[in-house]
Amino acid sequence: MASVMILETKGLSKSFGGLQANTDIDFKLQEGLITALIGPNGAGKTTFVGMLCGRIPATSGQVFFNGENISALPAHQRIRLGIAYTFQITSIFPGLSVAGNVELSLRRAQKLKTKDIGAAVQKVLAQVNLSDRADQVAKDLSYGHQRILEIAMGLAQDPKLFILDEPTQGLSESEVEEFIALIKSLAGDTTILLIEHNMDVVMKSADHIAVLNFGELLAEGTPAEIRENKSVQSAYLGTSEDA
């Protein structure tokens, strides 16, 4: 199968003062798949995807999206190329209604006539089972529903690349199952990069897995390959052969 790379990084690095959060990461993301990015706490996952979407400026290295070097673009321009991002720490518009949150996402991403916006908002909310909460103020939602709302805002952007930073954290078991079904239904048209601690979600959804450890790309492969990988196992057990 001829695989197309939607995103590529070359030598991407980030240091916070003396702390090397990401070191020289060369990474390729295959179009249309669900790729999971895993790694222990503090491995540098959030930092890495932050540099992809422009939220965190890279110390050095380059990012290519659909073959175009986007390293110099500010975040909002990268987003306009078709990237959506959900934060690890929920980030919504707390004082606006659920529908208002989604509307803001839709209006920016898609050229819609004013009269069509309402229906488009309803369609997105239906996809994530939030329809009956459309008029609720976002800050009054439960934690889990706020996270689902943020995912809905990403959906509303109809992105080419959807980056999700630990989306299932705080969701109930049934909501996690719905989430898995949702991203699987998106895959194909949308490329998904999923940071996830819940291994069950990773194994059920991912086509491909990348492992980050101490800011470096430790391993990549299919779920089966990663499960067998010795260095991945030791990274997760917190031991290392040469320690």
Partner: peptide
């Protein structure tokens, strides 16, 4: 849409940026 975008900035500037608002 412009006015709504201003409100978005008031509510959460970072989120507004990450939806593609300048």
């Amino acid at each position: 849409g412009f006015g709504l975008a201003l409100v978005a900035i008031r509510e959460n500037e970072e989120r507004a940026t990450m939806l593609g608002y300048d």
